[in-house]
Design a protein around this nucleic acid. Structure first.
Lengths: 348, 348
DNA sequence: GCGCCCGATGTTGACGTCAACATCGTCGGC
DNA sequence: GCCGACGATGTTGACGTCAACATCGGGCGC
């Protein structure tokens, strides 16, 4: 076993000691300047800063982390960034973390199978993070029977409440209610639903809230069409809906599926919104330019991201966490894909 | 200034020394087990592993990084994840890095103004990364006059070639040529173009390649309509195009703008593809379900991400870099938004 | 004018890991 | 049966930083 490793090329930069030597001070003084302590003589400070500049000194964050026992970094566990909501949330999380002086460590789960998830979480313990934000749909965690490293602050972005971690999410139930009520208020008899995948708590919340709203209004609850967030699944569902003349109003659990529904309706020659009204969920940037522009539920991803980070940092720094889930309100955005049902509706 | 800091709560886990004590061995043996060296007696190994499990031991990555002089982490500089291409590339980069045993450090640039970009890059030097992948449009860097920390391996994902860094990108010129030729081959006299923002090299490449293709075929080059990647800008451009009866073929520099163009054409009652053909660029998941489904150029983001990571890791480990830009080929995906021009076209 | 206080600076050691070297015991060859 | 080799394990120190403590020199109060 004489596997000869080539001598690792060390690209280490100058250290505090180098700066100290050049500036003619002790390392500790350099440290004080680097950390902007006020108890340094201004002449000394200038000298040290000049030396830093000359050598291109950068503090070594590993040494700092080792010394201070904190990384000032937040891990974010994600599964594919394809999902619109996840991406937007990640974006907001990254911005909020940066503003708070934390760095983001992306921990992608490459596959949803149990091995991959478990593997991702076992890597987690070794990562240089002070806390973790989980952006994966929580059912996936359940199925994988994953155990998080103990003592690591965690915030879950999801609608599930049966975790012993702080939870932040959009108020899915309120959003779905807004969507359903909007259609009923327009005069539709009932509302059909294209749901998200069963692995998603958010999808489950939206579906249940849609159902509850219909029941509370004494309306018939049509069978659910199962989707999986993708436009294709929306299209498949849409083909069934388009073939059914009873359908006048559809609530799709996200905008992408709504897009698929729209396409299916167009193909069948059913006019939106004259024959069928469609509502989505998310308000992605594209939705305003769908044909027709989509009525949908706007999620405030910026708030979700910021609140997640705030909750996590609080947990990290204070060592305690709130258990009350945070529900960020959503808003109905009315566009042209919804209208009152056509009066000339044939009922046999 | 008596800002009393509360004693920082240390959540440090057990260290090698703790494991060593419990297992009755030296720290070095624990280290050997943790690093899967082969020269450890299997009985000893079992004992150490049991101790690790019992204590919930996790190697401290800061100490490891300090000791080894490397972080096994890659920084990725991004500006907003809103852009489809950036997100997809980031996803692929994250996956590739994980597979290669590297972690991803997200370094978001919060604003495109010079201060923000410069600031982001000055933070960079302190980050715990061995190298950096830049996912920002390079013009932005130029304008900000940013200087990267010396000696830090860098890979740029862009089409610009005047950087002293390895460059990986989709072959924008080839893609734009495919799009333009597809429309010409269908029989269209010429092709109109809705471009991306001037800050983007990719947009510039696509525009120039479109123009070159037209010229090579001896076609008239219509005035460019400037967009900025957003569906709204595509819609604005689309309204002008829709009002011009000469327009029979449009190449939008991305799918989102193509969506806006489609909407504008629908509003004006111009039928796609009968009256006007439209081609996009990116092949986002939604495009297959636009109305009508969009003919577009598929970018292989997975390859772009993987090749970027490979190039960077090579640079990190070998200390040298290739200067030849890597251009990942694109593919034409034909759907229903393109067709031969309508024969009954009025020419006055 | 003496001592005390305070601000500026220096010295020491520890954070957790691992390479290099040291040690110890066993096994095989002659 | 002796010696050298080799495998298993232990010891030491250094990576870069910073808190805690030590030191040193003035200025100020009485």
């Amino acid at each position: 076993m004489s596997a000869e490793e080539p001598p690792v090329r060390r690209r280490r930069g100058p250290s505090m000691a180098d700066v100290a030597r050049l500036a003619g001070v002790s390392g500790q003084t350099v440290s004080r300047v680097a950390n902007e302590r006020h108890n340094v003589d201004s002449a000394t400070r200038d000298r040290v800063q000049a030396a830093m500049r000359e050598l291109g000194y950068r503090p070594n964050s590993a040494a700092r982390a080792l010394r201070n026992g904190e990384f000032r970094s937040i891990g974010v566990i994600v599964f594919e960034l394809s999902s619109f909501g996840t991406t937007r949330t990640l974006d907001a999380v990254a911005a909020a973390a940066t503003i708070s002086g934390y760095t983001i460590n992306l921990l992608p789960v490459l596959d949803v199978n149990q091995r991959a998830v478990t593997n991702a979480f076992s890597r987690l313990g070794e990562q240089a993070v002070d806390g973790v934000i989980i952006l994966i749909e929580a059912h996936t965690l359940d199925e994988a029977g994953v155990q998080l490293p103990e003592g690591l602050p965690v915030v879950v972005v999801d609608s599930s409440a049966h975790y012993d971690y702080p939870i932040v999410d959009s108020n899915q139930a309120q959003g779905a209610r807004l969507a359903t009520e909007h259609l009923l208020d327009l005069g539709h008899e009932t509302v059909w639903h294209v749901s998200g995948p069963p692995t998603s708590f958010a999808a489950d919340r939206r579906k249940r809230s849609w159902e509850l709203t219909l029941k509370q209004r004494g309306r018939e609850v049509p069978p659910v069409l199962d989707g999986d967030w993708t436009p294709s699944s929306g299209y498949e569902a849409g083909r069934k809906l388009a073939a059914n003349p009873d359908v006048t109003a559809v609530f799709a659990a996200n905008d992408q599926m709504a897009l698929g529904v729209l396409r299916a309706l167009h193909e069948r020659g059913r006019v939106v919104p004259d024959d069928v009204s469609v509502v989505g969920f998310d308000d992605m940037e594209e939705s305003a330019h769908f044909w027709p522009p989509l009525t949908t539920i706007l999620q405030n991803f910026v708030d979700v991201g910021r609140l997640s980070v705030d909750a996590l940092i609080h947990e990290i720094q204070a060592g305690e966490h709130h258990h009350d889930p945070v529900a960020v309100p959503t808003k109905l955005v009315v566009r042209s894909s919804t209208a009152p049902p056509s009066p000339r509706r044939p009922t046999i």
